[in-house]
Design a protein around this nucleic acid. Structure first.
Length: 431
DNA sequence: TCTGGGGTCCTAGGACCC
DNA sequence: TCTGGGGTCCTAGGACCC
């Protein structure tokens, strides 16, 4: 049976979300910035056509922004996450749950193999119309026999207007597909990054068509099994299946500071806060961490500064999801790696070696198998409930610091409201 | 002055086993 | 001069993704 995979992708996702709630930004060159208003992470089409690359530092383009009246918004992940969930639910209405894979915050694969009667161009237009009407977001749809071809089709749908935002390669002629592949740079293929593209060029592989026609075994010898699969997928041989939601294998929480930090106590404060975030995510997936890592960083862009970016991990005797245990471990790491005299700009924590909390292996050297302490469990669950109900900062460790916005806290100078997730910030429509 | 924050998979090499 | 054969597990680093 020929597979029919579609990829639905929101155009300029963060910018488009902001425009749903602020229509005055339609047609206006708009960017959304990373945390601390550092880099451009989303660009409206007007900004793309000005040649602004993804990831450009905002301070480097302030002149350009003044010239062209570019609006810059701080990123509002609460809003984007909620709009993403709504969008994915609408897309999910077009196939049974097992045939949808939510691949990222703005992309979803849908497997239409089991609906062979469906015209994918018509289905793609139906998805576009419904997502637009129900969420306000614009999407493009690409379809192909493999995930890699669906990705490519989506790229074509976005870049080539004659497709009207929906490109179905499963029903396109061989000549059409060949012409499209010959006109697209190999760098655009899913799985081919900057490094591999650079190494492919001297081998005469410039376009998608060149890569499709390359010898898969040779690609494997030179680049590994991942690129071999990509070549096979471009030829319509499925190597990648739709994936279920898997629990995370590691959880990271880190942030650049709003202002540099020099002393250990302040670094400790930041690490405690980030650990609270990481533990929230851990407990949401019902996991326990067997290893804890932490790191601090100086500013690698400042050549005049002495650089020091240490990291370390420590194993726990027993996997844990207890914020006190995990924070204590991270503090132990910080004490081991901290050195005074550096200008730190970032810190982070990692929870590693994650397992299912309910399936724990005993420790040979622990005096006895630690039974789960029901009173402790109740305490932690109560803290979770209070924080979910009244906000993340409601109950924390006593040592987390009492300042709500310490000097190192993130700077977000142009943040939109949490329109869809806070009663106090619901949009008001006057007429 | 100001340069993000997450993730995954694969491979090579070292250390160890019988 | 000559030095087996077959494994596992772990880690670090590299590549990619959004």
């Amino acid at each position: 049976m020929k597979r029919r995979i579609a990829l639905v992708d929101v155009n300029n996702f963060y910018c488009s979300v902001e425009r749903v709630f602020q229509p005055k930004y339609n047609g206006v060159p708009l960017v959304v910035l990373s945390n601390n208003d550092g880099c451009v992470v989303a660009r409206s089409s007007e900004v793309k056509s000005l040649g602004v690359p993804m990831g450009m530092p905002w301070f480097q383009m302030k002149d350009l922004a003044r010239q062209h009246n570019i609006v810059a918004l701080s990123s509002n992940y609460t809003l984007y996450g909620d709009m993403s969930a709504r969008c994915m639910r609408v897309i999910g209405q077009f196939a049974p749950p097992e045939d949808q894979e939510v691949y990222s915050i703005d992309e979803s694969f849908v497997d239409f193999t089991h609906q062979p009667q469906l015209d994918l161009t018509a289905a793609g237009q139906a998805i576009r119309a419904r997502v637009r009407q129900w969420t306000g977001l614009p999407v493009c749809v690409g379809a192909g026999q493999t995930k890699t071809l669906a990705k490519l089709a989506n790229h074509i749908a976005k870049k080539q207007p004659e497709w009207q935002s929906v490109c179905d390669l499963t029903s396109a002629s061989t000549e059409t597909i060949a012409a499209a592949m010959a006109s697209i740079e190999v760098r655009e293929v899913w799985g081919v990054g900057r490094r591999i593209a650079t190494r492919l060029l001297p081998m005469g592989v410039h376009t998608v068509a060149d890569l499709r026609d390359a010898d898969p075994r040779r690609m494997r010898e030179q680049f590994g099994v991942v690129l071999e699969r990509t070549v096979r997928e471009l030829n319509g041989v499925a190597c990648l299946d739709l994936e279920d939601m898997q629990p995370k294998k590691q959880i990271i929480a880190s942030r650049a500071f709003g202002a540099p930090v020099y002393d250990q106590a302040e670094l400790a404060e930041s690490i405690r806060e980030y650990m609270a975030r990481a533990v929230r995510k851990l407990r949401l997936q019902g996991g326990a961490a067997g290893m804890v890592g932490a790191w601090v960083e100086t500013n690698r862009f400042r050549e005049q500064d002495a650089q020091y970016s240490p990291s370390a991990t420590i194993p726990l005797a027993m996997p844990s999801d207890d914020i006190a245990t995990l924070t204590a471990a991270a503090m132990q790491v910080l004490r081991a790696i901290y050195r005074p005299g550096f200008r730190y700009v970032k810190s982070g924590v990692m929870l590693l070696d994650l397992s299912d909390k309910t399936m724990q292996q005993g420790d040979l050297f622990a005096s006895a198998m630690q039974p789960i302490n029901p009173r402790r469990e109740l305490l932690l669950a109560t803290v979770d409930r209070a924080n979910n109900r009244w906000g993340r900062q409601t109950i924390g460790l006593g040592s987390s610091g009492l300042q709500l916005s310490p000097a190192w806290a993130m700077q977000r100078s142009n943040l939109s409201p949490a329109y869809t997730t806070r009663w106090a910030e619901l949009p008001v429509i006057r007429h």
